[in-house]
Simulated scan of single mutants.
Amino acid sequence: MGWNPLVVNVIVIDMSDQVVHCLIHFVREDKRTYVSIVYAKNYYIHRRDLWDNLCKHTIFVGNHPWVIMGFFNVSLNLEDSTAGGSNVTLAMREFQECVDHMRMSDVSQSGLHFTWNQRPNASEGILKKIDRIMANDIFINEFLNAHAVFLSYRIYDHSPAVLKIPTLYNSNIKSFKFLISLFIKRLRLELDQAQIWLDSDPFSNDAREEHCHLLHAYNSAVIDEERFLQQKSKIEWLHVGDNNTSFFHKVVKGKQHRNHILTVEDNMGNIVEGRDVPACFVSHFTNFLGNSSNSTPIDIPVLAAKIKSAIFDIGNNKSLGPDGYTTEFFMSTWNIIGDDIVRVVQDFFSKPITD
């Protein structure tokens, strides 16, 4: 192996005949992640030593980013093989239990799904996904733009796997979620001070009023944050516990990671990456859809009852757009704004699309 020490430092922590555990330090960004490189044995009983090693390494890694990549020699899911079959084998179940114990999931990927082939000629041969790149939630949160690429295997039986970590990506735009969290953090500090004041002077009316005011503001802000994250995560409300914020943060991060498109192939077969991806999409759909000069309005009538039915069929807590208003808002105020919404929708479908 070789690497540029000015860019990364690699420390080998431990190794066995099936896995090498490393710590990688990205020098310029001062970020670190654990990486385990796997080359599993053929017989499933021999792989049990590997699963045991990985589970024990979970304790060592703790709450730090961790990636596991390489040749696992067994499929994780039924859809990872073209050989058919509807039953999970013992080897697959043991692999699944290990992955669940480590709380790993596949890194967002592009390229081939099946990473191993056994002479895929004519009607014969088998394709399987037995090479993977997986990471824990902490890695996904820390390296949100990381993605795996599985290249063509060509004359070989395995697909080369590449983990790309664009650590230099930086955005100066602060999200609405960031502003909410910052506001809650400030309220939390103010509430702490108010409770200290109340504790030192429990009979002070000013202290009691200040505490009551801040407690109400804090609870409202926490509820607003949960509602925002719930809308963004696009899942139904969970009736468990008093605060689901950490859960929704996890779901949002996971969805962003899975849905983030970092690599595409243009019409000429060229691979486009990074900040050139949006321009590639614009170019493709411009060529595909053409300009607006020849567009025509839809001549099928859009009935008011159909519009209302479509909106009322959406879940109460679903967000209709970037303004954040939920369907519940439109339902509860339909007698006031319903006619306006119908006119806007009908007007949209009655005119040609213009620039």
Rank of each mutant, 00 (worst) to 15 (best):
R154D: 10
A310S: 13
D17L: 09
M331F: 08
A83I: 04
L144E: 13
E236C: 10
F348Q: 06
K318Y: 08
V19E: 03
S309Q: 15
F248P: 00
F248K: 00
N141V: 02
F139Q: 02
T115G: 03
L6V: 07
S332W: 04
Y218L: 11
V107P: 00
S295T: 14
F349N: 09
G315P: 03
T167G: 04
M331Y: 09
I45H: 13
E124V: 05
A161Q: 04
T327V: 15
D192V: 02
I341E: 02
K253M: 13
S204R: 02
N316M: 05
S292C: 15
R119Q: 05
S171G: 10
D14H: 07
F72W: 14
E210Y: 05
Q96W: 07
A221G: 09
V61R: 07
R28F: 07
I184F: 09
M104G: 00
D347Y: 11
N141Q: 15
G84L: 13
V67D: 02
R258W: 03
T245M: 05
E226Y: 05
Y153F: 12
V10M: 10
N287K: 08
P278K: 04
G241D: 14
T167F: 12
G315Q: 15
C55M: 12
V251Y: 01
E142Y: 04
A83R: 11
S81W: 06
L182P: 01
G62C: 09
N267S: 11
V252M: 07
V302M: 13
Y325L: 12
D347S: 15
D355E: 15
Q18E: 01
N219C: 07
D323G: 02
I45S: 12
Q193R: 15
Y43T: 10
M102Q: 03
A304G: 13
V277K: 04
K308G: 03
P120D: 01
D192A: 08
S332I: 10
N267L: 11
R93F: 06
G2T: 11
V74N: 01
D206T: 12
V251T: 13
E124W: 04
E190Y: 06
D49P: 00
N77K: 15
F60S: 06
G70P: 06
R47G: 01
G290W: 08
S159A: 15
V74Q: 10
H57F: 12
R275V: 06
F348I: 14
T82Q: 04
I337L: 06
V272R: 01
A91I: 02
G84F: 12
G125T: 00
L168R: 15
F176E: 12
D157Q: 10
H158I: 11
